[in-house]
Design a protein around this nucleic acid. Sequence first.
DNA 1: CACCAATAGTTGAACTGTCAAGTAGTTCGG
DNA 2: CCGAACTACTTGACAGTTCAACTATTGGTG
Lengths: 179, 179
Amino acid sequence: MTDPRWLDDDEKRLWIGWVFATRLFWEEVERDLQTDADMPFGYYDILVMLSETPGRAMRMSDLADSTQSSRSRLSHAVNRLEQLGWVRRQSCPEDRRGQLAVLTDEGFAALAEAAPHHVESVRTHLFDVLTPEQRAQLGDITETLLDHLLPLVAARGDGRPEHFARARAANAAAQVARP
Amino acid sequence: MTDPRWLDDDEKRLWIGWVFATRLFWEEVERDLQTDADMPFGYYDILVMLSETPGRAMRMSDLADSTQSSRSRLSHAVNRLEQLGWVRRQSCPEDRRGQLAVLTDEGFAALAEAAPHHVESVRTHLFDVLTPEQRAQLGDITETLLDHLLPLVAARGDGRPEHFARARAANAAAQVARP
DNA sequence: CACCAATAGTTGAACTGTCAAGTAGTTCGG
DNA sequence: CCGAACTACTTGACAGTTCAACTATTGGTG
């Protein structure tokens, strides 16, 4: 690599702040979720996505895409969720390669139990600490980052970005399951 | 839990943007580092921290604290790094419970090789896409988040926050090892 | 219609990280 | 100067992730 563009002091400060903030934030949220509901965020996210789909069922690929997950990861995750009794697999009528992941009543209940804690956690660690102005700015910034990141992911053909719209439209990952 | 404070639509949008942005960002950076240097960010971070310490050696606990790492995690990581020949353990003269992690020449070389790619990756996925104004705002926001998060971590007695200052003062994680 | 590429999903091995428990050395009160 | 409490670090089992390889099915194309 020729002539690396090293960071100057301001940039370093921002970088380190970003590293710590994002990583600590996720540690906190995952930790809360683990404590309150005994599930990792990735599983929570899957349950939410299913809970908000009509029929509470989704094709594996679609589910993978809308949860920022590789197919492999999702497959393993659904194995685990199936074993917990929260999700059930069902083969897809239209496409015999396909599988549907179906949220069970137990899964829905687990989610309904977890959701209020999780929302509280998200508020505590994100919304409550930011001013309205900062929220607006952060919204902008994440927009910008996503404009850069989503095409990258798309280019690798991982699937996913087509589904960001869907994930975004859905309540995805925070609001959920008011019974 | 009584009366959860569900997110409204704007908040949901921000939340989902934040989730995707932070997670995709880290996926990209970790992926780049894996591709270019065949190491996870956590290991890179350890090597950087060592490389910037006089003597290129550090107590395990200090190293853990300055890399956002539990002692256990660090211990495992150093096992791996030792096995790669990049770090060497050495028992600490002043405190016979203590261990020093020492960066080897091979470790330094691996870092020097990785660093330019990594900086480029960080620029590409973060700095280059943001306007100067957005950078300033993001700096502010991460500050704010850290003001909230660091005390939390501290309260759990994980160690760490005392060392944030140090990590910040050091070049930590991006600039590095101009030989 | 037969073939072949692309799609859907799974699996197992290797790796990283977490949690709880364990060892060893230090410090400090009585 | 003895023992209890604390600190430093390690370990082993386990959970989640990735990667590469594999099976089954579908959808063109000649």
